[in-house]
Amino acid sequence: MGKAKIKIDKNLFERIKKYAGIAGYSSPEEFITHCLEKEVAKLDEAESEEEIKKKLQGLGYIS
């Protein structure tokens, strides 16, 4: 899988590094990836719920 670089505030990165160790992640990258995946999944879910509504709305009884 390809990798992409992103820029992050240095202070924030220091904090991430600290908590990654405490939370048992093997590296700050792993910690960041995990957090972002969780957030993206939430957004995916929100989108899914929107689609659920759309598909039911065709019935006419609800809006």
Partner: peptide, 9 residues
């Protein structure tokens, strides 16, 4: 359903 799998879009 329609082809989108919905009640109609």
């Amino acid at each position: 359903p329609d082809i989108m799998g919905s009640y109609g879009i």
